[in-house]
Simulated scan of single mutants.
Amino acid sequence: MEKIKICLVSDTVYDVNGVSRFIQDFSKEALVLKKDFCVITSTKKTHYEKISNIKNIKPLFTMKMPFYKSLDLVLPNFFKIKNEIKKLNPDLLHISTPGTVGLCALISAKILKIPVVGIYHTDFPAYMYKNTKSKFVKKGTILFLKLFYKSYKAIFSRSEEYFKTIEEQLSFKKEDLYTLKAGIDIKNFDKKFKDDSIWEKYDIKQEKFKFLYTGRISVEKNVDILLKVWMENFFKECELILVGDKEIEFLDKDKLKKSNITLVGRKQELELSQLYASSDCFIFPSTTDTLGQVVMEAMASGLPVIITNEGGPKTFVKDDCGYIIDLNNETQLSEAILKMSKKDEVYYSKKEKAYSFMRDKSISHSFLDFWNKNQEILEKLKVRN
């Protein structure tokens, strides 16, 4: 096949979330595999690691994103973004997010006559409804996305679970939908990072059964429901550890401690890997994630998982790796917590199956599959034209 050049544009690249980590991992993998792949973003945020094929164009203005405080809403420099895309002259322009940076890229692609492909990372209509409880806002979000994605030649989804949603809400044909093969950097998420001494700094007793959650501590991730169930049942021999940016109100620290809940804030690099591998079980109550990158990171670290029966994670998590619960039935959540905390033969079986499942889910496999599918899209476009 002939060589191709791909440019990906995203509003979120240096944030602490699964989408950002995915884009960073893809960028590094492209360098290893010597593929002509680059990323453009616009943010005042920085990253602990310099990745040479990520171009950050300084924004003109930033403010906190409504309903998503850990993200910035930016006013990008349109002309600099357009000129950068023009200079790169990619065969395909991937737009990863329907934000202001993505909109600049979309307009630039139209002017420069570059075909556009996208990645459907987040179920935004469900996300907005979760935060506002307004059907009007949900319908408005769907209308905006339909207009935003109208000129796209193809859309990637991180799981087939969302194909029907994309077909119905965005009026896309199934033949133009592609699965973005699941994969993470399994070198950095592995049970070899287990280090029980890490709990000393958080004043968590070694003998406690440790349930871990990583991600935004927010309503749309259903962390409020998790906290409600946890506090109502009081799992005496367990600890709930929350890693991420806090976006909902909490009780004071003393009450949290009495409920065996510990907030450790945002974590990255080695400490994040150690927190995963040194915990006992991962719990993820979200119903709006299209894949659930953090669930894969947890399983790669040797943790069985508790997830919901809605959203992307249920497409790859099977019963032998954890428990899949209906969050509308809070009893199911409390029962799953109690079953896991027994640490019996069933628990250890699920733990081993989760770890084994992730052994062939490397970012390298995911990137190569992505690259081949983009070549396929370009061939289709040539035929159509």
Rank of each mutant, 00 (worst) to 15 (best):
I184H: 10
M65R: 10
L272D: 13
K246P: 08
S341V: 07
Q268H: 10
C7Y: 03
F370C: 01
V19S: 11
F235C: 05
Y355Q: 08
I51C: 07
R158W: 00
D224A: 06
F124W: 11
L227I: 11
L73Y: 09
D320G: 12
K380H: 11
E310D: 06
D360F: 03
E167F: 04
E297Y: 12
E335G: 06
Y68G: 03
E271A: 08
K138G: 02
T315W: 02
D326F: 13
W230M: 01
P125I: 00
Y127F: 15
Q24W: 13
E297V: 08
G265K: 05
T62D: 13
S356L: 15
A298C: 03
I95Q: 09
E232A: 05
I306D: 06
L272S: 03
Y355R: 15
K236I: 03
D224R: 10
C238K: 03
T179A: 08
N77A: 10
K58S: 12
S278W: 06
K210G: 02
C281W: 05
S96R: 07
K58D: 14
C321A: 11
H47C: 06
D203G: 05
F282A: 08
I95N: 04
N131I: 03
I324W: 09
K246S: 13
K5C: 12
K153E: 14
F209E: 04
K187F: 12
F282R: 12
V383F: 13
T165K: 11
N222P: 07
K353D: 14
V19F: 12
S108V: 09
N83F: 03
M128C: 05
I155P: 01
Y149G: 02
L147F: 11
L338S: 14
P125N: 11
D196M: 15
T141G: 02
T262E: 10
S70A: 15
A182Y: 11
K86A: 14
Y129P: 06
S218K: 09
K236E: 13
S134T: 09
P76V: 07
I6Q: 07
R359Y: 12
S10K: 02
E271H: 03
I325N: 12
F193H: 09
I184R: 08
K44D: 07
E200C: 10
V9H: 11
H47M: 08
I225C: 08
N17T: 08
I261K: 07
K87F: 10
L106V: 01
V9E: 02
E269V: 01
F156M: 07
H94D: 09
D254K: 14
L275C: 10
N56F: 08
Y120G: 03
T43P: 04
D123V: 04
I166H: 02
N374T: 03
L327V: 05
L8S: 15
G312K: 02
Y129A: 01
P115M: 12
F235I: 01
Y129F: 15
C281E: 06
K44S: 10
K44C: 13
N385F: 14
N260C: 00
I283E: 05
F370A: 01
L227G: 00
K138I: 00
K3E: 15
F234M: 10
T179Q: 13
F61R: 14
L93H: 01
F189L: 10
N385Y: 11
T12S: 14
E168N: 14
L368P: 02
E376K: 15
